[in-house]
Amino acid sequence: MIRYIFKRLVYMIPTLFGMSLIAFLIIQLPPGDYLTSMIASMTQSGQNVDPRQIALLREIYGFDDPIHVQYWKWITGIVTRGDFGHSFEWNRPVSDLIWDRMGGTLTLSIASLLFVWAVSIPIGIYSAVRRHSISDHVFTFFGFLGLAIPNFILALTLMYVSYRFLGQSVGGLYSPEYVGAPMSWGKLLDFLAHLWIPVIVIGTAGTAKLIRILRANLTDELHKPYVVTARAKGLPEYKVVLKYPVRIALNPVVSAIGWVLPELVSGITITAIVLNLPTAGPLLLRALISQDMYLAGSFILLMGVLTLVGMLISDILLALLDPRIRFR
C-alpha cells in the first residue's frame, strides 16, 4: 500500500510539469497581455497613456521575453522559492491573494460536501430499497428539481427568504460588524448563520446527482446472490442492506471525490458572485478578464494540483474500501 502511494506520488511529477506548461500556455493564448487591457481601459476612461511608461513597464514585467523564458522564470520561482509571481492588478504577491481566499473556499467546500453526503446517502439508500414507492417518487421529483434549478436563482431565492423572513443580513460569510474582527464565539455563530445558504445552494445539485447514482447502483447490487446469502444467514434486513450492497454501491461516490475538489474552487463561481462570498472563484474570474496572467496561471495550476490530489485521495479510499482494487 505504501509502495503504491509512493509510486502514485512519483507519477504525479511529470503530470504536474505538463499541467504547468498547459496552464502557462492558456494564459498566454489570448492576444495581448495585462498592459494592453490596462491601456484599453485607461483610454476608455479618457486617461492619457504615456508610451514611454508602457515600454518601461513592459521591460520590468518581462513581456518582451520569448515565451519559454517567461515560463522558465515563472516555474523556477514556484519550485525554488514558492513564489507564484506578482499580481498586476492587486499589486500583491499571487500566493498571498490565493491564501487569503483559500480558507473560506475550503471551509465552504468541505461543509457543502458533508451536506451532500449527509443528505444524499440516506435518501439514496431509502429510494433504492423502496423503489417505486410514493416516497421514492417524491425524492426523485425533488432531486430532478434540484438538478434543474440554476444555482444563482436558488441563491437569490434563499437570500430573499432569509432577509425577508429571518431578518438576516445576507451576502458574504460574516455580518458587517464581524468582518475583520478577531475570532470569537459571536463571530463563529454569525459565520454558521451565514453558512447555510451557500451550503444549500452549492450542495443541491450535487445531492440530486448523488441520489440518482446511489439509487441506480444500489438497485443493481440489491439483487445479487450475496445479498440473499446475507439474508439466509439470519441477519436483520437493515443490516443486510447496510453491510453488504451499500458498501459496494458506495464505490462511485468515493471515486467522485476526485473531481469534487477542483469543482469546488471553480464551479461555485456564479453562486459566489451572487452571494458575495470571499472564495477563489470570483478572484479567478477577475484575473482572467483583466489578463492578470500570473494570478490566473497559478489558479489554473492549483486546480490541476487539486484534481491530482483528489484523484489520489479517492483512489486510496477506494483501495481501502474495496479489496478487489487493493490486490490488483
Binding site: P225, T229, A230, K233
Partner: peptide
Amino acid sequence: GSKEILKLRGGKIGLIFQEPMSSLSPVH
C-alpha cells in the same frame, strides 16, 4: 422479519447456492 424467522435462517436451515463467485461478498 420477526426474530423467529431470523433465528431459523442460518440457524436451523442452511443455504448453499449455485454461483460461488457471486454468492459471497467480494469486499469482506
